[in-house]
Design a binder for these strands. Structure first.
Lengths: 346, 346
DNA sequence: CTGTTAGCGCATTCAT
DNA sequence: ATGAATGCGCTAACAG
């Protein structure tokens, strides 16, 4: 038995003390370190007899390879980071977007035996830490969810030779996964027009993000095609901002009879604002959201919305990353389909 | 210059190739590796002149310490794992529990400059990977959220000398953070009794978890104190199971006039079952949930529920882990308060 | 205050 | 098929 190293008050000092090493396994099995290494890494060039001896010794000692030592020589860690460019509070708020992306990524990496490291970069320090973390070789690659235009981290990582996969910033020399924002929004607007709605407004998302811009573009295009006038207010994807923007729209254009809101969370806020103003949905004002998160079902009335396959974004990002790490080719831009889900609000 | 290693098709092989090392920085700055190391690690015992030279050289080369190399000698990684003992699909589902715990953990670790590694252990392989990951020294410590009784991972890690903090399994030689389930449930039942409800049923949670058992205990205790009979069905914390259990209760005891449901998600299912059965809430049947996640507000009618401070569980776990890693004392069991939030369903 | 030296635990040549 | 030797990049004693 190895002596347990303990501090003054009996407190254990340092995480791991008596962890068995390759060398100890080798000694116990009566072979060289190299042989143990071969067995541990599943090479087939080892005599059955020795292999069994090594396996027995490893089991008895409870040997587990030391990650850092191994990664120091292999330059691989078998883990991948997912960077969420918001604060933890925002990432794990009511908005199901990030959790769903994480779910997709996690299940795909899980299946590949890779580990997921989550990093939020809502602050400048957090961004710096993430950079040092990734560049420091803690992970084999980095995935970004829902990027803002001004975020330099992806480029920086690319320059450092870190494999990168993006969501929300195409044309970046890194594979990008996104959805068909414009197509989805056009379907929504056309649905409103087909209903006979004439004054169709929008609550747009933040304009420093592709998702915000393209959903607004889709709205403008569909309206222009029908020769209608655009009525626009801008939010930041939060419920509060949706409520405020809806109030603004009602003030600007009291006669509006429909609104496309660029996220379900904002749509929930917009519904509140409409209720405050005494407008009935959908009789007076039709409302369509975007995302189709669980909340859409719980809205009153249940929200008609453009569904985007959020978890699928995560899965696709993970798969692209896995291919990248294998040195296989990856398509530079993958666009997933969106779909109008009609419920009661429009 | 180091030879760049490239594969056949020009594909880069292995993530990082020409990354500058301590040695190169030292050479460029005209000092020894040790001096560079001192500067990089912020030691004050370096002459101003040399320090500046080193910093300049490091900046020019874009030097970032190699995590594995450092951790190989320091035995520290500055990152901590949070283990979520469910599948990714369950962890990141409608239930806000895990996301909220993650949020609490992330914000606290963030502030301490530590990194968060998320591991889901919903399958046997995932559990094995998590074990090897933690024991392999990838992280400095491991936190468990919402443990099941039969989960051996915490004990296993403890035996391996990995610092552990738990939620959901007390008495385990590892600090445990939990909430006052029993107190919260008793308050709920007393509220129902004060309303004059006489036949009070419960949809209990899974009985292989402390949260499930204690919430049922609280219910039984409060009923016994009032000399009432217990009416019990069991779910697994999902909405579907809540709906099924509620149907069961209505079949078993058509005359019930109140139900305490051990999670908001199950309560949402129960409300559906009650609606199906034509019972009005709260007129015919009062409903109280547990958790106070966002969904509770969106229920129809808005759900009276026992609030537990979920994000606070995460924060407390993180703080306990940080203290553990500092070698400071940590209280073995921390119980956070719960609180009855009265809305319209009871 | 600085440089020299010696490993950390492992995978991987290269001999045998 | 196996073992001996080497080095990944870094920190920490130890001298000076």
């Amino acid at each position: 038995m190895r002596r347990a190293v303990a501090g003054p008050g009996g407190t254990v000092r340092g995480p791991r003390q008596g962890r068995p090493t390759l060398e100890e396994v080798a000694e116990r099995a009566g072979v060289s370190r190299a042989t143990v290494s071969r067995v541990v890494n599943g090479q087939t060039t080892v005599a059955e007899e020795l292999r069994e001896a090594v396996e027995a010794a490893a089991a008895e000692l409870g040997y587990v390879p030391h990650a850092a030592a191994r990664s120091l020589v292999t330059h691989r860690t078998d883990s991948v980071a997912l960077i969420l460019p918001e604060s933890p509070n925002r990432v794990f708020s009511d908005d199901q977007f990030f959790p769903s992306v994480i779910r997709g990524v996690a299940s795909e990496l899980d299946a590949a035996g890779k580990l997921l490291v989550l990093l939020t970069t809502g602050s400048a320090e957090a961004r710096l830490r993430a950079e040092r973390y990734a560049v420091g070789g803690h992970v084999d690659g980095v995935m970004f969810a829902s990027l803002h235009d001004a975020d330099l981290l992806p480029e920086l990582m690319l320059r450092r030779g870190v494999p990168v996969v993006c969501n929300g910033l195409p044309h970046l020399a890194a594979p990008c996964i996104d959805v068909d924002h414009i197509g989805g929004v056009r379907a929504a607007i056309e649905h409103l027009i087909a209903q006979g709605r004439t004054r169709i407004a929008t609550v747009a998302g933040p304009q420093d993000m592709v998702a915000g811009r393209e959903r607004l573009d889709g709205y403008r295009q569909a309206l222009a095609a029908a020769d209608r006038r655009a009525i626009v207010a801008v939010g930041d994807f939060t419920a509060e901002s949706g409520q405020a923007a809806m109030r603004q729209l009602l003030a600007d254009e009291p006669g509006l009879d429909a609104v496309f809101v660029a996220s379900d969370l904002m749509a929930h806020g917009a519904l509140q604002a409409l209720r405050e103003a005494g407008r009935r949905v959908p009789e007076d004002v039709a409302v369509i959201g975007f995302d189709d998160i669980a909340l859409a079902l719980f809205c009153d009335p249940p929200l008609t919305t453009v569904r985007q396959p959020i978890a699928q974004i995560g899965r696709s990002m993970a798969r692209a990353m896995l291919r990248l790490l294998e040195g296989q080719e990856v398509e530079p831009l993958k666009v997933l389909p969106t779909e109008l889900v009609i419920r009661e609000s429009a």
